[in-house]
Design a protein around this nucleic acid. Structure first.
Length: 367
DNA sequence: TAGTCTTTTCCTGGTT
DNA sequence: CAACCAGGAAAAGACT
């Protein structure tokens, strides 16, 4: 499937299923459109796995928390080794941050990573000036994007999944999206309310090296087995050649000296369960872009039509760009034991809702 | 803080 | 051979 088609499906489907999640601003739509027109990249906020709103706030007004979240985003996005960060340098608010010169930032965070942060900050500052004044011309925006891109010779990869901000600017003029307003009333019985924000779901993973080996915070040495010098490319983290460990790879975690905390809103309920996500695709056939279909509506038998697209969509929902049907189907198989699903033998991509699932029966959804 | 729950990831082996 | 299925194992992270 063409990536553009897949992206279209994913974006529409997610927007259709979870329309209550925040819509892009005019500014982000404009920038995204520009980006997608001129560059097949996403420049900022494209992999924000946290729920912080740093990108929606003028950096001048960021709290220390916002600054940390912003740095965390770039650590994760660039696969920067967080152990090399000095937490003391991360402990500042936006006012202080915005006063730092490029030299100061590269001094604090290393040439590569500091430059990345500096460029990101410049873009965000300009973007919020633009929000206020609406004076940023198309050319200026292009220049900003150019500047930002030029700062990352290897730090930006092609998008795995491009989120196209194709939502209407004015809903009233676009009746196709009218269900946004009434979606909440369409939520199925038994559906939890864990539909977390989608505004951050611009996805992709990029790799890059931003560490200056001579940067003051760098404590590694030539003998550090995890690193080896690459001519002209600074230092790149070397993946060990050993077999990957089973289980979910660990996330970088906040230690006594180093950085990155994974957090979610404590007060938000657990997110949508996979089976509920699948169910919601099925019970909104007009919105699911042919991803799945009922084989037997009354018996709850359904089939994946575009298995990888559904997996990508699930991954997008969970901010996990590496989701595959293989993994999704493993999770589905765990439902057999709990009788949320029942086996359907001999039929590929076909599953059946079990007695412990709910909200899919015609009478439950008012059909 | 420990335990539980729900995935996520990886894997081996089998089937279509 | 690719895609899918089955299920063990280990781990993450949210929640209780």
């Amino acid at each position: 499937m063409a990536s553009s088609e897949l992206s279209h499906i994913l974006n529409n489907a997610n927007a259709n299923l979870y329309p209550s999640e925040s819509q892009p601003t005019l500014t982000t739509m404009m920038v995204s459109t520009l980006m997608l027109t001129k560059y097949p990249y996403v420049l900022f906020c494209k992999n924000a796995k946290n729920t912080s709103l740093w990108h929606q706030v003028n950096p001048q007004y960021w709290t220390k928390r916002n600054v940390l979240d912003w740095i965390e985003f770039h650590v994760e996005d660039s696969k920067f080794d967080a152990r090399l960060l000095n937490m003391e340098f991360c402990n500042m608010d936006g006012t202080v941050l915005c006063q730092l010169s490029r030299e100061t930032m590269t001094g604090m965070f290393g040439l590569g990573f500091g430059e990345r942060l500096y460029q990101s900050l410049e873009v965000l500052k300009a973007r919020h000036v633009d929000d206020l004044t609406q004076n940023c011309t198309l050319n200026e925006t292009y220049e900003l994007l150019d500047d930002f891109l030029l700062g990352f010779p290897q730090g930006l990869g092609l998008l795995d999944t491009v989120v196209v901000n194709n939502a209407p600017i004015d809903k009233k003029e676009t009746p196709d999206f009218g269900y946004y307003s009434d979606y909440k009333t369409q939520l199925t019985p038994g559906s939890d309310n864990g539909y977390d924000s989608y505004s951050e779901s611009l996805q992709s993973s990029t790799t890059g090296s931003f560490l200056n080996p001579s940067s003051p915070e760098s404590t590694m040495s030539d003998s550090d087995p995890e690193y080896y010098p690459i001519p002209s490319k600074s230092f790149i983290k070397q993946e060990p050649l050993e077999r990957k460990k089973r289980g979910r790879p660990p996330k970088l975690s906040r230690g006594s000296e180093h950085f990155v905390e994974t957090k979610k809103n404590k007060h938000s309920p657990r997110g949508t369960h996979l089976w509920e996500f699948i169910r919601d695709i099925l019970i909104h056939p007009e919105k699911n872009q042919g991803l799945m279909k009922w084989e037997d509506r009354r018996d709850g038998i359904f089939k994946f039509l575009k298995s990888e697209a559904v997996a990508q969509l699930w991954g997008q929902k969970k901010k996990n760009s590496s989701m595959t049907y293989e993994k999704l189907s493993r999770a589905m198989r765990y439902y057999y034991k709990r009788e949320i699903l029942e086996r359907v033998d001999g039929r590929r991509l076909v599953y059946k809702f079990g007695k412990n699932s709910s909200g899919w029966k015609p009478e439950e959804v008012g059909m």
